[in-house]
Nucleic acid binder design. Structure first.
Lengths: 338, 338
DNA sequence: CCTGGCACTCGCAGGGCACGAGTGCCAGTT
DNA sequence: AACTGGCACTCGTGCCCTGCGAGTGCCAGG
């Protein structure tokens, strides 16, 4: 176990390095922080920290830089989430309150988060699998053509157009609409397949074609769209990444564009409080020099989706975590109001 | 007016520079192109081209580089749009055919375009102002709460939730729905305000509150959403931009994220065939070293929106233009089928 | 009007050098 | 036992200088 002071030294190293982006030496440390010991002592402590793998030197005769393990310890033990200032909170609320629909909420959230953290923001759309059905609407567009509109409690709308094997009457459609809503409105998406299973049997054989078509499209929509969507913003902040540019930034942009990758990573973040995934902890090659701060948000107690930021491992963890948490809370509130 | 050969020299310079990214000299030119004259002659031609402002030297004793004006001439007079190969076309069609809904079409288009051109792709969602109403749906969510769902002929869906001043009956809502659709279904969005103008008068005073609320929300939606949306992809390709990185790439990323900026720029591209805006021709600071190739696409003869790519002024214009045009055509087809 | 020749410019890569930040170790102090 | 000051050592960085070569402009001759 590391002594109190050594932890203190690690904390100081992380803070300085995050601030300056340059390897930090023993002398500079003692000057900028009130450690009450001499540089020589700090050097000894640093040697220990290096042995334990918390810090490293880029080359002999350079200062030290925290390793992923060092950041890990810092985040777990040494850092407090830094709450936002009152004006900041007010600004968040005002900004989010102006949103007119779900897209707008997500869009504003992304911009906000990117601005607050000066990093790349990622916001998952409220996921269908965890939401409930608010309403299903069926519209006939042509004799044998139906449009299905699915509306969720979070305001998300999905629609599909389908062709039926045979023409159908307006009353049949109304009947189907009514029964369908009676069964699944207010229910969770995951329940839907079970709930509609025996629906075709209760219809005239004439209408079976219609019912079958609609149901299979509905279920298909559920499956396809459980694969969630993301909105990403603030990529311009990647340019503040480091000096060794193209190499670092390129794979990050690629990873961000592959929504599947991001969804997977966010899916693995399961801490109810907040998850910080540092450097090589990220199960994706392009993101091994980034850290991802993720938190769930939701309209009720339960998280319906996640949001977070992606930044260099060398990031201001307390500040970032504070911003991410605050934004998640306000978004939750806004969604609850809709 | 420039002689035939001088134009030929300019064409050769553009081609070589695009390929190598390095200033091109007279000797290299005569070797790689069949100009039938000696380097010395080419040098004289180059001196003229430079006087006229078509090319420039980064420094004395370096090769020449095309200027914006040079690219302009190249695009207008010297370049042919390069059609895609048959396999490429087939691949495009196959890939786009798999799309399930509008979001998917746009998403696939963006990815496709980014991949084909190895640049940043920008696709505008089919715009509401140029589309027609397919259907308006009204759903009562609570005694005094209505959801408005607006469906366009291109498959786009917008929805809003609103609170009415007083509770209303289901029949009133059905009545409004029916009359509203009778008037505006199939009509252009721009016509809607005129068409619904006198609608409130034809309702009972009891229901006026409902009607007013719904109509004002509808009109608001039209205004707000005429401000179109974009999808952007392939930003990772920005890393192939040039050597002088952060400086170039940052403002481009910023401009791309400001959808308003991109929408404005695309809005100015009004050539029915294809618009190429080069370097400083772009009315936005961050994009003065990029070129934008834009083309309209649509389900019928008429363009409902635009798509294009953003790349360095030093880009392969014929190839890019070919890809952009081809993609626009196929997207148009796909939309027509929906 | 084109060409070959020639002198000139200048960016760039490579080598050598001095500087200084930072380290590890050790002996001395508390 | 823990801390400190001193000291020799490492090594990356910036700077200057130099030589090379690509590329140019100009000119005289075909």
């Amino acid at each position: 176990m590391l002594s109190e002071r050594r932890l203190e030294v690690l904390r100081a190293i992380v803070q300085d390095y995050v601030g300056t982006e340059e390897p930090v030496g023993s002398k500079a440390l003692t000057q900028r922080h009130d450690l009450r010991v001499s540089p020589a002592t700090v050097r000894n402590d640093m040697a220990v920290l290096e042995d334990e793998g918390y810090i490293a030197q880029p080359h002999t005769s350079a200062g030290r830089v925290p390793t992923d393990k060092g950041y890990r310890l810092f985040v777990d033990k040494l850092a407090d989430v830094k709450p936002l200032s009152v004006p900041e909170r007010r600004a968040i609320q005002n900004f989010l309150d102006g949103a007119v629909d779900l897209d707008d909420v997500v869009g504003r959230t992304v911009r906000l988060l990117a601005q607050l953290t000066r990093q790349v923001a990622v916001v998952q759309y409220p996921s269908l699998s965890r939401s409930t059905v608010r309403h299903v609407e069926l519209l006939s567009l042509a004799p044998a053509r139906v449009m299905l509109v699915l509306i969720t409690d979070t305001g998300r709308v999905e629609q599909r157009v389908m062709d039926c094997p045979a023409p159908f009457g307006e009353t049949s459609l109304a009947e189907l609409r009514a029964r369908l809503n009676a069964r699944i409105a207010g229910q969770r998406f995951t329940e839907v397949p079970r709930l509609v299973q025996d629906l075709p049997e209760s219809f005239d054989t004439d209408d079976r074609g219609l019912v079958q078509t609609v149901l299979s499209t509905l279920l298909e929509t559920l499956v396809e769209e459980t694969e969630e969507r993301l909105m990403i913003g603030g990529t311009a902040n990647l340019t503040r990444f480091g000096h060794d540019f193209p190499l670092t930034i390129r794979p990050v942009l690629e990873a961000l564009e592959e929504q599947v990758v991001m969804l997977k990573l966010m899916g693995e973040a399961n801490d109810p409080e907040m998850t910080v995934s540092i450097g090589r902890e990220n199960a994706h090659e392009g993101l091994t020099s980034t850290s991802i701060v993720t938190v769930g948000y939701g309209s009720g107690d339960e998280a319906v989706a996640k949001l977070g930021v992606v930044g260099p491992t060398r990031m201001d963890y307390p500040g970032t975590m504070g911003a991410v948490r605050a934004v998640a809370r306000y978004v939750g509130q806004i969604l609850a109001e809709k």
